[in-house]
Computed example of a mutant assay.
Amino acid sequence: MKAENKKILDVMKFRHACKKFDPTKRVSDEDFETILEAGRLAPTSFGMEPFKILVVESQDLKDKLYPVSWGAQRSIEGASHLVIFLARKRADLVADGEYITHMLKDVHQIPEEAREMRRSIYRQYSEKDFGFIHFEDASLEWSRKQAYIVMANMLTAAAYLGIDSCPIEGFDYAKVADILEEAGVLDPKHFGVAVMASFGYRGEEPRHEKTRRPMSEIVERI
């Protein structure tokens, strides 16, 4: 096996859902900015980036999240950084809307003569091919899928830096959304909660090596 291949697999084996963090160790600003940048560079469908990353630094906010986020409690107690991923709702995803126009014009910087062609392709996809734009729940779920890709990039980048992490779904979505809305960091017209993740350094080693199904069970070449 080439050294580059082994490095990749070693990083994947190092990464695990850390359940106990060492509260005395903090991820450096440089390393965490690199993790955030890995998230920013993640691929999303049509490059529309329908997500937002909240880095929770307020202890008061952590205290409010603690009782309604059972899956995040040990992270709140010991992780260096807690992150909440938000997903954009239908209001921001319509083809002719302000957000999509901003992405096409200002972010992608598509020339005006080509912009409407790109918009029409996205409209076909969102309204007919995938059809999520007709329903609020489906639109939010589409955005959540993109947020998960962003999170995966960040988890992998952290592992490459020797930093532990934990993806977190164990929380009351409605209550977390209410807390974030009350704190003024979530506009319920535009965003819903997708998932959480924490980053830091393990306080104990995993109890066993990573277990996965064999390749023969998960891959079929057709």
Rank of each mutant, 00 (worst) to 15 (best):
D10W: 02
D10V: 07
D10C: 06
D10A: 12
D10P: 09
V11Q: 05
M12Y: 03
K13T: 09
K13H: 07
F14L: 09
R15S: 08
R15D: 08
R15H: 01
H16G: 08
H16W: 14
H16Q: 14
A17C: 10
C18I: 03
C18P: 10
C18Q: 09
K19I: 04
K19D: 12
K19W: 04
K20N: 14
K20R: 15
K20G: 08
K20D: 12
K20H: 10
F21K: 04
F21A: 14
F21W: 07
D22R: 01
D22L: 12
D22Y: 05
P23A: 15
P23I: 12
P23D: 15
P23Q: 13
T24Q: 09
T24M: 08
K25L: 15
K25G: 04
R26E: 14
R26P: 08
R26Q: 15
R26W: 12
V27Y: 01
V27G: 02
V27I: 06
S28R: 11
D29V: 02
D29L: 06
D29I: 00
D31K: 02
D31T: 01
D31S: 01
F32K: 14
F32R: 14
F32E: 13
E33I: 06
E33V: 04
E33H: 15
T34C: 11
T34G: 08
T34Y: 07
T34E: 13
T34M: 11
T34F: 06
T34D: 13
T34W: 01
L36E: 03
L36V: 06
L36A: 12
E37A: 13
A38P: 08
A38N: 09
A38H: 11
A38I: 10
G39H: 01
G39P: 00
G39N: 07
G39L: 00
R40Q: 04
R40S: 05
R40I: 00
L41Q: 02
L41H: 03
L41S: 08
L41F: 07
A42Q: 00
P43I: 13
P43A: 14
P43Q: 07
T44L: 06
T44W: 07
T44A: 09
T44E: 04
T44F: 07
S45P: 02
F46Y: 07
F46L: 00
G47Q: 01
G47R: 03
M48K: 00
M48T: 00
M48D: 01
M48P: 06
M48I: 03
M48H: 00
E49H: 08
E49R: 08
E49T: 04
P50I: 01
P50L: 01
P50M: 05
P50Y: 02
P50F: 03
P50N: 00
F51S: 05
F51H: 12
